[in-house]
Design a protein around this nucleic acid. Sequence first.
DNA 1: CTAAAATCCTGGTGGC
DNA 2: TGCCACCAGGATTTTA
Length: 266
Amino acid sequence: MPELPEVETVVRGLRAPLVGRTFTTAKVLWPKTVKPLTPAEFESRLPSQKVTAITRRAKYLQFQLSAGDTMFIHLKMSGNLLVEPTDSPVHKHVRAIMGLDNGHQLRFKDTRKFGRIYLTDDPHSVIGKLGPEPLPDSFTVDDFKALFAKRRGRLKPLLLNQQFIAGIGNIYADESCFIAQIDPRRQADTLSETELTRLYQAIRQALNHGIVHKGASLDAVYLGGEFQNHFQAYGRTGQPCFTCGTEISRIVLGGRSTHFCSRCQQ
DNA sequence: CTAAAATCCTGGTGGC
DNA sequence: TGCCACCAGGATTTTA
């Protein structure tokens, strides 16, 4: 359940139960979950550290800890974080358990085992190479245009490149291109000033919409609700474009499924 | 330099 | 019901 809006929603939901709490135990059930530490190192280093703040950088959750460490969690494709009573049943896909000082546990559940938990005193080693966050007002349209200077390659893979711009995933890349009415196959250095301005606004609109909507109904999203109704391109292969009625196309671009309207998006 | 393919993993889905 | 190919919201590494 990745992408910036989901991660932001998870962060907001974890602050109340976790900020101010102290970790008392740690158990790694799938060894590769932790980096760069071994499970034994992680299990001895986390306990006694208190959570002082939880923030987000790109698709990473960032836990500020009292001993000066930072714990980053990347959910990748299927990760999720649960706060559950210590005596409650542990789901089979839980990969790490972090005990709290109030009878609860933070449990990292991740079916596909791609997710990672980093514990380090050097945040730069984890998030140092990430591109800019697209949502703060300090990130201007001029900043966005500057990113495209002397960049080659097609547009969509560039939007997915976290070192180029941080936080955009496959869904919001497709949605942003649709909103901006730009073909995701375009060479990045052929976009006009007008198109770049549209794309900048589209990215922020799509991401903000995702945050607002998920904040309101996170449960409905993952219980199989009407979430997909909010997408205009992603996952709508063969269905009519809401703008012109043309069937939405699906192609593979940069190894990722890509959905777009061949008529609206030029 | 771009770019495609392989890799890490499990589970759901749709075709036969 | 079984079997199988294919698909999945990420990101890095390898290969061309």
